[in-house]
Amino acid sequence: ELKPWIEKTVKRVLGFSEPTVVTAALNCVGKGMDKKKAADHLKPFLDDSTLRFVDKLFEAVEEGRSSR
């Protein structure tokens, strides 16, 4: 259920769609990584945008959990 949101956010942050980043982000969430681990995992794909993306990712995960 997070996938469409992650795809949109990747496109907004990077300026283009990147399926590799979407898959990696879903893996981070699925494995229950904390922000630091997720950022380390995604840094090779996102460079300077990593922290901004990870912040948005974790906000969305929290919103998703609290709306259930």
Rank of each mutant, 00 (worst) to 15 (best):
D48T: 10
K11F: 09
K43G: 04
D55G: 02
L51D: 15
S49R: 13
G15M: 01
D55P: 07
K36W: 04
N27Q: 12
R68K: 10
V10H: 00
S67P: 14
K56Y: 11
L51E: 15
A38C: 12
P4V: 15
A39H: 09
F58L: 05
S66M: 12
A24N: 07
D34N: 09
D40T: 09
D48E: 14
F16L: 06
N27G: 04
S49E: 11
L51V: 12
E62V: 08
R12G: 10
V29A: 06
A60I: 10
D40K: 13
P4Q: 15
V22Y: 04
A60M: 14
K56M: 15
D48K: 08
A60E: 12
P4A: 15
K11Y: 07
S49Y: 12
D47H: 15
I6L: 05
L26R: 03
C28E: 00
F58S: 03
H41M: 11
F53E: 04
G15Q: 02
F53K: 09
K43T: 07
E62R: 10
K37F: 08
F16E: 12
V61P: 07
V54T: 05
K11T: 11
G30L: 15
E7A: 11
S67Q: 14
F45E: 05
P4H: 14
L14W: 00
P19Y: 01
P44I: 07
A39N: 11
L57K: 05
E7L: 05
E63L: 11
V54F: 00
V13C: 05
L26E: 05
K3A: 02
L14K: 02
K56S: 12
M33K: 05
G32T: 03
V54S: 04
T50D: 00
T9I: 08
V61I: 13
K36N: 10
D34G: 07
F16H: 12
E63A: 12
V22T: 05
M33T: 04
G30N: 15
K3S: 07
L46P: 02
W5F: 15
K3W: 04
G32Q: 08
V29D: 01
L46A: 04
I6K: 02
S66A: 13
V54N: 07
E7V: 07
K36E: 11
L26Y: 05
D48S: 11
V10D: 02
D34V: 04
A24E: 14
V54D: 06
G64C: 14
G32W: 08
F16N: 08
L51M: 12
F45Y: 13
R52V: 14
E62F: 08
V21E: 05
K43Q: 08
A24R: 05
A25V: 12
M33N: 10
T9P: 04
T23Q: 15
E7M: 07
P44K: 08
V22P: 03
D48I: 06
R65F: 10
R65S: 11
S17A: 14
E1R: 02
T23H: 08
P19D: 10
D55V: 00
V13T: 08
G30K: 15
A39K: 07
T23L: 10
K3N: 02
G30E: 15
L14F: 11
A24P: 02
K35V: 03
A39T: 09
L51T: 14
W5C: 11
D55K: 02
R12K: 14
K3Y: 09
F16I: 11
G64Q: 11
V61L: 10
E59Y: 07
T50V: 04
D55A: 01
P19L: 02
L57N: 12
D40S: 10
N27V: 05
D48N: 14
T20N: 13
K3R: 10
K11Q: 13
V29G: 01
D47G: 15
K3T: 06
V22L: 08
P19T: 07
S17T: 12
E63W: 06
M33G: 02
P44L: 01
K43H: 11
M33D: 01
T23R: 09
K36V: 10
V21C: 05
K43E: 06
N27T: 14
T20R: 12
P4Y: 15
R12I: 03
D47F: 13
S66T: 13
V61K: 02
G30C: 14
G32F: 05
P19N: 06
L51Q: 15
L51W: 13
H41G: 03
S17R: 06
L26A: 06
F45Q: 02
I6G: 00
E18H: 14
R65E: 13
K36H: 07
T23Y: 08
F53D: 00
E7W: 03
A38M: 13
G30H: 14
A60V: 10
L2S: 01
L2Y: 08
F45L: 13
A38G: 03
A60K: 14
H41S: 11
W5D: 12
T20L: 07
K37A: 14
M33V: 04
R65D: 11
S67W: 07
L51Y: 15
A60G: 12
A39V: 14
T9D: 01
D47A: 15
F45W: 05
E63G: 10
F45S: 04
K37Q: 14
G64R: 13
K11R: 10
V10A: 04
R12T: 14
L46R: 02
D47P: 09
L51I: 11
K8Y: 04
S17K: 07
R12F: 07
V13A: 04
K36F: 07
G30T: 15
D48C: 06
S67K: 13
T20F: 00
L46Y: 04
M33E: 03
S17I: 15
